[in-house]
Protein backbone atom coordinates (compact mmCIF):
# COMPACT_ATOMS: atom_id res chain seq x y z
CA UNK A 1 0.00 0.00 0.00
CA UNK A 2 1.58 3.27 -1.03
CA UNK A 3 0.57 6.23 1.03
CA UNK A 4 1.34 9.89 0.77
CA UNK A 5 4.52 10.84 2.57
CA UNK A 6 4.12 13.23 5.47
CA UNK A 7 7.62 13.37 6.88
CA UNK A 8 10.74 12.69 4.92
CA UNK A 9 14.24 12.74 6.36
CA UNK A 10 17.36 12.16 4.37
CA UNK A 11 20.67 11.51 6.06
CA UNK A 12 20.12 13.88 8.99
CA UNK A 13 23.09 14.55 11.21
CA UNK A 14 23.45 16.70 14.27
CA UNK A 15 26.21 16.90 16.80
CA UNK A 16 26.89 19.02 19.84
CA UNK A 17 30.58 19.61 19.99
CA UNK A 18 32.13 16.17 19.97
CA UNK A 19 28.93 14.40 20.97
CA UNK A 20 26.96 12.99 18.10
CA UNK A 21 23.21 13.17 18.56
CA UNK A 22 22.13 12.06 15.10
CA UNK A 23 24.42 10.00 12.92
CA UNK A 24 22.68 10.21 9.56
CA UNK A 25 18.99 9.34 9.89
CA UNK A 26 16.83 8.61 6.87
CA UNK A 27 13.20 7.64 7.06
CA UNK A 28 9.75 8.36 5.74
CA UNK A 29 6.51 8.63 7.64
CA UNK A 30 3.19 8.27 5.82
CA UNK A 31 0.24 10.55 6.31
CA UNK A 32 -2.06 9.62 9.14
CA UNK A 33 0.42 7.17 10.64
CA UNK A 34 1.37 6.81 14.28
CA UNK A 35 5.10 6.51 14.04
CA UNK A 36 7.05 5.68 17.17
CA UNK A 37 10.66 6.36 17.97
CA UNK A 38 11.78 3.87 20.55
CA UNK A 39 15.09 4.30 22.24
CA UNK A 40 16.78 5.00 25.54
CA UNK A 41 17.59 8.47 26.86
CA UNK A 42 20.27 10.12 24.82
CA UNK A 43 19.49 8.13 21.70
CA UNK A 44 18.85 11.34 19.77
CA UNK A 45 15.06 11.40 19.84
CA UNK A 46 14.72 14.91 21.18
CA UNK A 47 17.26 16.32 18.75
CA UNK A 48 15.44 14.72 15.86
CA UNK A 49 12.08 16.03 17.01
CA UNK A 50 13.44 19.52 17.51
CA UNK A 51 14.80 19.51 13.99
CA UNK A 52 11.43 18.41 12.67
CA UNK A 53 9.72 21.07 14.78
CA UNK A 54 11.99 23.72 13.16
CA UNK A 55 13.65 24.44 16.48
CA UNK A 56 17.08 23.14 15.59
CA UNK A 57 19.09 23.27 12.43
CA UNK A 58 20.54 19.96 11.26
CA UNK A 59 24.26 19.89 10.54
CA UNK A 60 23.70 17.93 7.38
CA UNK A 61 20.93 16.27 5.48
CA UNK A 62 17.42 17.41 4.71
CA UNK A 63 14.10 17.03 6.39
CA UNK A 64 10.68 18.00 5.17
CA UNK A 65 7.29 17.84 6.80
CA UNK A 66 4.23 17.90 4.57
CA UNK A 67 6.49 18.92 1.72
CA UNK A 68 7.82 21.91 3.63
CA UNK A 69 11.54 22.06 4.30
CA UNK A 70 12.22 22.44 8.02
CA UNK A 71 14.93 25.01 7.42
CA UNK A 72 13.64 27.10 4.53
CA UNK A 73 9.91 26.94 5.05
CA UNK A 74 9.91 27.04 8.82
CA UNK A 75 7.36 29.84 8.97
CA UNK A 76 4.71 27.96 7.01
CA UNK A 77 5.55 24.76 8.77
CA UNK A 78 5.02 26.31 12.18
CA UNK A 79 1.39 26.90 11.30
CA UNK A 80 0.60 23.26 10.70
CA UNK A 81 2.69 21.67 13.45
CA UNK A 82 1.55 20.58 16.84
CA UNK A 83 4.56 20.16 19.06
CA UNK A 84 4.71 18.90 22.60
CA UNK A 85 8.20 19.10 24.09
CA UNK A 86 9.50 16.44 26.40
CA UNK A 87 9.48 18.82 29.29
CA UNK A 88 6.21 20.29 30.53
CA UNK A 89 6.10 23.58 28.70
CA UNK A 90 2.85 25.28 29.51
CA UNK A 91 2.40 28.33 31.67
CA UNK A 92 2.43 26.97 35.19
CA UNK A 93 0.80 30.01 36.69
CA UNK A 94 -2.06 30.10 34.23
CA UNK A 95 -5.07 27.92 34.82
CA UNK A 96 -5.95 24.96 32.66
CA UNK A 97 -8.58 26.93 30.75
CA UNK A 98 -6.32 29.96 30.37
CA UNK A 99 -3.54 27.86 28.92
CA UNK A 100 -5.89 26.44 26.34
CA UNK A 101 -7.19 29.89 25.44
CA UNK A 102 -3.66 31.23 25.21
CA UNK A 103 -2.50 28.55 22.81
CA UNK A 104 -5.64 28.84 20.75
CA UNK A 105 -4.95 32.56 20.66
CA UNK A 106 -1.39 32.39 19.42
CA UNK A 107 -2.39 30.03 16.63
CA UNK A 108 -5.49 32.14 15.92
CA UNK A 109 -7.59 29.03 16.33
CA UNK A 110 -11.17 28.81 17.45
CA UNK A 111 -11.59 26.58 20.50
CA UNK A 112 -15.22 25.78 19.68
CA UNK A 113 -14.45 24.85 16.13
CA UNK A 114 -11.74 22.38 17.04
CA UNK A 115 -13.16 21.28 20.34
CA UNK A 116 -14.23 17.93 18.91
CA UNK A 117 -10.56 17.04 18.53
CA UNK A 118 -9.80 17.44 22.17
CA UNK A 119 -13.19 16.74 23.69
CA UNK A 120 -12.36 13.29 25.03
CA UNK A 121 -9.13 14.46 26.56
CA UNK A 122 -10.27 17.82 27.76
CA UNK A 123 -13.33 16.44 29.50
CA UNK A 124 -11.03 14.54 31.81
CA UNK A 125 -9.24 17.67 32.90
CA UNK A 126 -12.24 19.99 32.64
CA UNK A 127 -13.13 19.53 36.33
CA UNK A 128 -9.82 21.23 37.10
CA UNK A 129 -10.26 23.99 34.53
CA UNK A 130 -9.69 26.72 37.10
CA UNK A 131 -6.67 25.06 38.63
CA UNK A 132 -3.21 26.33 37.82
CA UNK A 133 -1.39 24.16 35.34
CA UNK A 134 1.62 23.90 37.64
CA UNK A 135 -0.54 22.25 40.30
CA UNK A 136 -1.79 19.42 38.09
CA UNK A 137 -0.59 15.86 38.41
CA UNK A 138 1.85 14.52 35.85
CA UNK A 139 -0.76 12.76 33.76
CA UNK A 140 -3.09 15.75 33.81
CA UNK A 141 -0.28 18.02 32.71
CA UNK A 142 0.46 15.87 29.73
CA UNK A 143 -3.19 15.69 28.78
CA UNK A 144 -3.45 19.44 28.94
CA UNK A 145 -0.27 19.81 26.92
CA UNK A 146 -1.74 17.51 24.30
CA UNK A 147 -4.90 19.62 24.20
CA UNK A 148 -2.84 22.75 23.73
CA UNK A 149 -0.80 21.15 20.96
CA UNK A 150 -3.98 20.02 19.22
CA UNK A 151 -6.20 23.05 19.54
CA UNK A 152 -5.20 24.52 16.19
CA UNK A 153 -5.86 21.19 14.42
CA UNK A 154 -2.31 20.52 13.32
CA UNK A 155 -1.59 18.36 10.30
CA UNK A 156 1.36 16.79 12.03
CA UNK A 157 1.67 16.18 15.73
CA UNK A 158 5.12 15.77 17.24
CA UNK A 159 5.14 14.36 20.75
CA UNK A 160 8.44 14.08 22.56
CA UNK A 161 8.12 11.48 25.32
CA UNK A 162 4.56 12.42 26.20
CA UNK A 163 4.18 9.61 28.68
CA UNK A 164 7.44 9.85 30.58
CA UNK A 165 6.75 10.21 34.26
CA UNK A 166 3.08 9.43 33.85
CA UNK A 167 1.32 6.67 35.76
CA UNK A 168 0.26 3.49 33.99
CA UNK A 169 -3.44 4.30 33.84
CA UNK A 170 -2.86 7.76 32.41
CA UNK A 171 -0.41 6.34 29.92
CA UNK A 172 -3.01 3.96 28.67
CA UNK A 173 -5.62 6.71 28.40
CA UNK A 174 -3.14 8.89 26.62
CA UNK A 175 -2.51 6.25 24.01
CA UNK A 176 -6.19 5.62 23.54
CA UNK A 177 -6.49 9.26 22.63
CA UNK A 178 -3.66 9.10 20.17
CA UNK A 179 -5.25 6.15 18.45
CA UNK A 180 -8.53 8.07 18.26
CA UNK A 181 -6.70 11.04 16.76
CA UNK A 182 -5.56 8.80 13.98
CA UNK A 183 -9.09 8.87 12.64
CA UNK A 184 -8.64 12.58 12.03
CA UNK A 185 -5.77 11.74 9.68
CA UNK A 186 -3.26 13.55 11.81
CA UNK A 187 0.24 12.23 11.37
CA UNK A 188 1.60 11.49 14.82
CA UNK A 189 5.26 11.21 15.58
CA UNK A 190 5.87 10.00 19.09
CA UNK A 191 9.02 9.27 21.04
CA UNK A 192 9.02 6.98 23.99
CA UNK A 193 11.50 5.10 26.10
CA UNK A 194 8.76 2.57 26.98
CA UNK A 195 8.98 -0.51 24.84
CA UNK A 196 5.45 -1.59 25.71
CA UNK A 197 4.08 1.48 23.96
CA UNK A 198 5.76 0.47 20.76
CA UNK A 199 3.15 -2.14 19.89
CA UNK A 200 0.54 0.62 19.84
CA UNK A 201 2.27 2.40 16.96
CA UNK A 202 1.66 1.64 13.30
CA UNK A 203 5.35 1.57 12.69
CA UNK A 204 8.31 2.06 14.92
CA UNK A 205 11.93 2.98 14.52
CA UNK A 206 14.36 1.60 17.05
CA UNK A 207 16.97 4.24 17.61
CA UNK A 208 20.24 4.09 19.48
CA UNK A 209 23.28 6.39 19.43
CA UNK A 210 21.67 8.53 16.76
CA UNK A 211 21.22 5.63 14.39
CA UNK A 212 18.10 3.79 13.36
CA UNK A 213 18.58 0.07 13.99
CA UNK A 214 15.28 -1.06 12.51
CA UNK A 215 12.15 0.46 11.03
CA UNK A 216 9.07 -1.68 10.64
CA UNK A 217 5.70 -2.52 12.08
CA UNK A 218 5.99 -3.77 15.65
CA UNK A 219 4.87 -7.23 14.51
CA UNK A 220 7.50 -7.50 11.84
CA UNK A 221 10.17 -6.37 14.22
CA UNK A 222 9.36 -9.04 16.77
CA UNK A 223 8.99 -11.60 14.02
CA UNK A 224 12.47 -10.84 12.83
CA UNK A 225 13.88 -11.90 16.20
CA UNK A 226 16.09 -14.81 15.21
CA UNK A 227 16.51 -16.73 18.45
CA UNK A 228 14.41 -18.75 20.85
CA UNK A 229 13.45 -16.90 23.98
CA UNK A 230 12.83 -18.31 27.45
CA UNK A 231 11.36 -16.60 30.46
CA UNK A 232 12.61 -17.61 33.84
CA UNK A 233 10.67 -16.58 36.90
CA UNK A 234 12.82 -16.54 39.94
CA UNK A 235 13.00 -14.94 43.34
CA UNK A 236 16.69 -14.40 42.78
CA UNK A 237 17.11 -13.00 39.30
CA UNK A 238 20.71 -11.97 39.74
CA UNK A 239 21.87 -15.47 40.59
CA UNK A 240 19.78 -16.82 37.75
CA UNK A 241 21.50 -14.51 35.29
CA UNK A 242 24.91 -15.47 36.56
CA UNK A 243 24.12 -19.18 36.33
CA UNK A 244 22.52 -18.89 32.92
CA UNK A 245 25.53 -17.09 31.49
CA UNK A 246 27.58 -20.19 32.35
CA UNK A 247 25.07 -22.47 30.65
CA UNK A 248 26.24 -23.76 27.30
CA UNK A 249 24.31 -22.66 24.25
CA UNK A 250 22.99 -19.48 25.80
CA UNK A 251 23.34 -16.31 23.76
CA UNK A 252 22.22 -13.84 26.37
CA UNK A 253 20.51 -13.51 29.71
CA UNK A 254 18.87 -10.22 30.59
CA UNK A 255 16.86 -9.06 33.53
CA UNK A 256 13.32 -7.86 32.84
CA UNK A 257 11.78 -6.78 36.11
CA UNK A 258 11.33 -9.93 38.16
CA UNK A 259 11.93 -12.28 35.26
CA UNK A 260 14.99 -13.25 33.30
CA UNK A 261 14.87 -13.43 29.51
CA UNK A 262 17.28 -15.96 28.09
CA UNK A 263 17.89 -16.32 24.40
CA UNK A 264 19.39 -19.28 22.64
CA UNK A 265 19.71 -20.44 19.07
CA UNK A 266 16.49 -21.96 17.85
CA UNK A 267 16.13 -25.66 18.63
CA UNK A 268 19.35 -25.86 20.60
CA UNK A 269 17.88 -26.16 24.07
CA UNK A 270 14.45 -26.31 25.61
CA UNK A 271 12.76 -25.03 28.73
CA UNK A 272 13.10 -28.31 30.61
CA UNK A 273 16.85 -28.39 30.13
CA UNK A 274 17.12 -24.96 31.65
CA UNK A 275 14.92 -25.89 34.58
CA UNK A 276 16.96 -29.01 35.30
CA UNK A 277 20.21 -27.09 35.05
CA UNK A 278 19.01 -24.48 37.50
CA UNK A 279 17.78 -26.99 40.06
CA UNK A 280 21.10 -28.86 39.78
CA UNK A 281 22.79 -25.65 40.75
CA UNK A 282 20.47 -25.31 43.69
CA UNK A 283 18.01 -22.72 42.44
CA UNK A 284 14.51 -23.66 43.52
CA UNK A 285 11.30 -23.93 41.58
CA UNK A 286 11.86 -21.43 38.91
CA UNK A 287 9.12 -21.38 36.32
CA UNK A 288 10.74 -21.63 32.91
CA UNK A 289 8.77 -21.23 29.72
CA UNK A 290 9.26 -20.49 26.06
CA UNK A 291 8.18 -16.98 25.23
CA UNK A 292 7.46 -14.71 22.29
CA UNK A 293 9.94 -11.90 22.00
CA UNK A 294 8.81 -8.36 22.75
CA UNK A 295 10.07 -5.13 21.29
CA UNK A 296 12.47 -4.79 24.15
CA UNK A 297 14.06 -8.16 23.45
CA UNK A 298 14.45 -7.12 19.85
CA UNK A 299 15.94 -3.83 20.90
CA UNK A 300 18.55 -5.46 23.08
CA UNK A 301 19.29 -8.00 20.39
CA UNK A 302 19.76 -5.30 17.76
CA UNK A 303 21.79 -3.20 20.11
CA UNK A 304 24.20 -6.06 20.78
CA UNK A 305 24.41 -6.93 17.13
CA UNK A 306 25.22 -3.39 16.11
CA UNK A 307 27.86 -3.37 18.82
CA UNK A 308 29.45 -6.48 17.33
CA UNK A 309 29.27 -5.02 13.86
CA UNK A 310 31.11 -1.99 15.06
CA UNK A 311 33.83 -4.03 16.74
CA UNK A 312 34.40 -5.93 13.53
CA UNK A 313 34.82 -2.68 11.72
CA UNK A 314 37.44 -1.60 14.18
CA UNK A 315 39.41 -4.91 14.07
CA UNK A 316 39.17 -6.41 10.62
Amino acid sequence: MTKEVSIHCENLTKSYGSATALAGLSFKVSKGEIFGFIGPDGAGKTSLFRILATLLLPDNGTASVEGLDVVKNYKKLRQILGYMPGRFSLYQDLTVAENLQFFAGIFRADIKENYYLIRDIYEQIAPFASRRAGKLSGGMKQKLALCCALIHKPVVLILDEPTTGVDAVSRQEFWEMLIRLKQEHITILVATPYMDEAVLCDRVALIQHGEIMAIDTPDNITRAYPDQLFKIKSSNTLTAIRLMNEFEGILSAEMFGDTVHVSAEKGRINANAIKEYLSEKGMMASAVSEADPGIEDCFIHLMKRSGIVRKEKVNP
Binding site: L55, R78, Y83, P85, S89, F103, F107
Partner: peptide, 13 residues
Protein backbone atom coordinates in the same frame (compact mmCIF):
# COMPACT_ATOMS: atom_id res chain seq x y z
CA UNK B 1 14.13 28.12 31.33
CA UNK B 2 10.67 26.62 31.74
CA UNK B 3 10.50 25.58 28.12
CA UNK B 4 7.50 27.68 27.24
CA UNK B 5 9.64 29.55 24.75
CA UNK B 6 10.00 26.28 22.88
CA UNK B 7 6.26 26.11 22.35
CA UNK B 8 5.97 29.79 21.51
CA UNK B 9 8.66 29.42 18.88
CA UNK B 10 6.87 26.56 17.16
CA UNK B 11 3.78 28.73 16.93
CA UNK B 12 3.29 31.14 14.05
CA UNK B 13 4.04 34.08 16.37
Amino acid sequence: ELGTMEVLLVSPL
